[in-house]
Computed example of a mutant assay.
Amino acid sequence: MHYIHRDESALYYECGFSSDNAIFLRLGEEAWFITDSRYTVEAKEAVRGAEVVEAADLLAALRGILRRHHARRLAYDPKEWDAATIGRLEAKLPGLYFAKVPDLSHRRRIVKRPDEISLLKEAARLGREGFDAFARYLESEGLGRSEKRLHFACEGAMRFEGEYALSFDPIVAIGPNAAKPHALPTDTTLRKGALLLVDAGLKYRRYCSDRTRTIHVGDTLHFGDEQRFDSPKIQKAYDLVRKAHDTAIAKARSGMTGAEIDRLAREVIEKGGMGEAFVHSTGHGVGLDIHEMPYISKRGATVVEDGMVFTIEPGIYIPGEFGIRIEDMVVMRDGRAEVL
């Protein structure tokens, strides 16, 4: 297969190195990593399975290689390349057909190798440690702090004081703000008895973790699944979300589509009378990117296989009142979902 990439995660997957100005080209058994002089020293040290080409004009270097090898068809992901750039390449390379393949790299990466699963498992373990560190902060000095200050503290806990990068900007939401699935931090302060939703992750050797917990802020504070809320309405919603989460993990099987796994979680919440409050998908793939294939959604047509890693994260959101989400990463192994 002949193809090109410029997305950094795609570059890293192909050859073990990336930069913000590079093109990866594969023509059958041969491959090239084209970059500028700022990155060639590191690239020559780290790139595997590809020839490093230094160029001031990356597209000109790409065209030269394609002409020399008389390429006739080249696949690319239209999400990585803008139409104007592809148009210029087509104009200067008559006879070469540029084939659009959406999610080209994600499709290649959808089934994780054993070494990738190990890295994702370690990312998830470290992510849990980050949550534990954040819980200790909340217990010692979190009360009275604003969501903005808590967000800052969560970032520090998940980064391990700069050791790791974040998978994404954390979500730290109190009470009514948690009803927004992607809530932004406000000046609302944390009080005893409040509901607190935290969604955060880190990167371990480029691989992401993703975890969400919704907790009751009481005399003791922890991110475990057992939570007891003062409000019966919140408790009912929490118990439904937890049951949906646990049911989807217990019943997911290799050979199901993403939509079928989504249905496992959604049916629990619907039977509990709160189906309209589950406003997003049940999960998404995780790897070098925080959102990858497969998508565990109503429209998820991908057949799930062993080696795929994705989240299970059902939720219930009541605008103006509260939001609840519980999320874990799983890997399909021996036909079943195993929590990482």
Rank of each mutant, 00 (worst) to 15 (best):
A123K: 01
F98G: 05
G49K: 04
A55V: 08
K148M: 14
R206I: 00
D20H: 13
H69L: 05
F98L: 13
R48G: 02
L119C: 02
R73H: 10
W81Y: 13
V198P: 00
P181A: 04
R109P: 01
D230C: 06
V309P: 07
A194G: 09
A259M: 05
G275Q: 07
L59W: 10
R109N: 05
S105Y: 14
R48C: 08
A248K: 06
D103F: 15
L59M: 04
G49S: 04
H284L: 02
L166T: 12
E129C: 02
I171M: 11
R191L: 14
L202M: 13
A133R: 15
Q227V: 06
I312P: 00
Y207S: 01
D199Y: 00
D289A: 12
D328I: 03
C154G: 13
E270D: 11
F160P: 07
T85H: 02
D219Q: 12
L264G: 02
L166H: 12
V198Y: 05
R191E: 15
H2T: 11
I23R: 01
I174D: 07
K112T: 06
I23E: 00
A173G: 09
E80M: 10
I316K: 01
R253L: 10
A250E: 13
L138K: 06
E129F: 01
T35C: 15
R125D: 10
I269N: 00
A157E: 10
K233S: 13
A237I: 02
D115N: 07
E14G: 01
E305N: 03
Y204K: 11
L66K: 04
L240T: 05
D82C: 09
E14Y: 01
A61G: 06
A123W: 02
I34L: 10
S105V: 01
A237P: 03
I326P: 00
A157K: 10
R113I: 00
R26C: 11
G201I: 11
